Amino acid sequence: MCMRFLRAQAGATPHDKRLIGLIGELSTRNEDFRIRSAAHDVSVHRAGAKTLHHPEVGLLLLGFEQLTLDSASSLTLSTYIAEPGSPTPERLQFFAAWTAPAV
């Protein structure tokens, strides 16, 4: 999935020297990256669901939506939403409490 985003970003900003350098370096150093990059699999999903696994809080099921910024069309703002009543909001609260600095 990340390869798709990377390829989509490269297509949207073809003159980005840092991105071109990153893709070149990854292509020369990582065979798996080279194979996946050669697939030319490009897609951008502006909304959907993500499943994440955190080693301390467990499985997180999140809906997401990406918003394109009018002032910089190559940038997007991603929002993630936990389904109310599911275990995810409780796990996120635990994570927030666990990572909060001591007062």
Rank of each mutant, 00 (worst) to 15 (best):
M1W: 03
M1I: 09
C2D: 12
C2F: 11
M3L: 06
M3S: 04
R4I: 00
F5C: 07
R7N: 01
R7W: 01
R7I: 01
A8I: 01
A8R: 11
Q9S: 14
A10K: 09
A10S: 05
G11V: 04
A12P: 02
T13C: 11
P14F: 13
H15V: 02
D16H: 05
K17Q: 03
R18S: 03
R18P: 02
L19K: 04
L19D: 11
I20C: 12
I20T: 14
G21L: 07
G21C: 03
G21V: 02
I23F: 08
G24L: 12
G24K: 08
E25M: 02
L26N: 01
L26K: 06
R29P: 00
R29T: 15
R29Q: 12
N30Y: 05
N30G: 02
N30F: 05
E31R: 13
D32Q: 09
F33H: 09
F33A: 12
R34K: 15
R34L: 11
R36M: 14
A38S: 09
A39N: 13
A39M: 15
H40S: 13
S43E: 13
S43T: 15
S43A: 14
V44Q: 02
V44T: 09
H45W: 15
R46Y: 14
R46S: 15
G48K: 05
G48N: 12
A49V: 15
A49G: 10
T51I: 12
T51E: 09
T51C: 05
H53G: 10
H53L: 15
P55K: 04
V57T: 07
G58N: 10
L59T: 05
L60C: 07
L60E: 00
L61C: 02
F64A: 07
Q66L: 05
L67T: 08
T68A: 15
L69T: 15
D70H: 06
S71W: 03
A72W: 04
A72D: 14
S74Y: 11
S74F: 10
L75P: 14
L75I: 14
T76D: 01
T76R: 12
T79D: 00
T79Q: 12
T79R: 14
I81G: 00
I81A: 04
A82N: 01
E83A: 01
E83H: 02
E83P: 00
P84Y: 10
P84Q: 14
G85K: 14
G85L: 10
S86T: 13
S86Q: 14
P87S: 02
P89D: 07
P89E: 09
E90R: 13
E90C: 06
L92T: 08
Q93D: 09
F95E: 05
A96S: 03
A96V: 00
A97K: 12
T99Q: 07
T99L: 07
V103Y: 02
